[in-house]
């Protein structure tokens, strides 16, 4: 009979973890003995099926609404203007929304795949709006670089948070990240609009935010333990 050495109990099956403590149980029981056991069937939750059914119904209703949202503006646009003009914007918006809903309703499995689908949707959407507008180049020259900067900054912040898990310290990094993003926006937008003298409005925010961010980081990294204790003593709740 299969047996867990840690719990000291006999168990039904071998070559699986112990049902009580997860200790791996090696092969002991013969296949005939296993067949003789009554066991349990593969169980399903009564509610899991119901919830999934309800979610599927909601998604289908939304799909029908989006098809209507696709057709009606197109029809009105064609009747009124004899061409597709403003309806192209609404149709592209609906396509982007559809893609987001497809991810949100869990039809795309896996975190990585979800992120990829969302990013592709954003890029296609930005490029699409630019093209509909008669391609002014703002999608490639402005929107994509800004998207990349934002993603890099988010990624860096997540990596730092995973290492430290301190909101106090993270606040400092978030402030610096926002500052970098603001500078990036002004630089990229200024370059795109061919402004000779780029006026950095973010300079106004540079001093207070650098000061605040630096103080937060300094406190979290360099504050002497004695002071930390003093603050704790005064402000403990």
């Amino acid at each position: 009979m299969a047996y867990c050495p840690k719990c000291g109990v006999s168990v039904e099956k071998d070559q699986v973890p112990c049902p009580l403590c997860f200790t791996y149980i090696p092969k002991i029981v013969s296949d005939e003995e296993l067949l003789d056991e009554n066991g349990f069937p593969t169980y399903y939750s009564l509610y899991e099926n119901l919830v999934n059914f309800f979610i599927r119904v909601v998604y289908r209703v939304l799909c029908v609404l989006m098809i209507l949202g696709f057709l009606i503006p197109t029809l009105i646009d064609v009747i009124l203007n004899k061409a597709l003009t403003w309806s192209l914007y609404s149709n592209l918006s609906i396509l982007i929304t559809w893609s987001f809903l497809y991810v949100a309703f869990d039809y795309v499995k896996g975190k990585r795949d979800k992120i990829i689908v969302i990013l592709i949707t954003i890029c296609v959407g930005l490029l699409g709006f630019d093209l509909i507008n008669g391609y002014a180049g703002w999608s490639v020259e402005t929107a994509f670089p800004l998207l990349v900067i934002t993603l890099i900054l988010i990624q860096i912040n997540i990596a730092i948070f995973k290492r430290n898990r301190s909101w106090f310290r993270q606040s400092g990094y978030i402030i610096f990240s926002i500052l970098l993003l603001l500078i990036g926006i002004e630089l990229i937008v200024g370059r795109y609009s061919n402004t000779d003298n780029i006026v950095f409005h973010s300079v106004d925010e540079l001093l207070p935010s650098t000061l605040l961010g630096a103080i937060l980081l300094l406190i979290s990294y360099r504050m002497p333990k004695k002071w930390v204790e003093k603050l704790k003593r005064k402000f403990h709740i």
């Binding site: 009979m1 867990c4 719990c7 000291g8 109990v9 006999s10 168990v11 039904e12 099956k13 699986v16 973890p17 049902p19 009580l20 403590c21 997860f22 066991g39 349990f40 169980y43």
Partner: peptide
């Protein structure tokens, strides 16, 4: 786990059966 381990400690032989999916 704690309940059955205690019984085993007292000298009772126990066979465990469960419907847990991880098992």
């Amino acid at each position: 786990r704690t309940f059955f381990r205690k019984l085993v400690k007292e000298g009772v032989q126990i066979k465990i059966e469960t419907n847990r999916s991880a098992y």
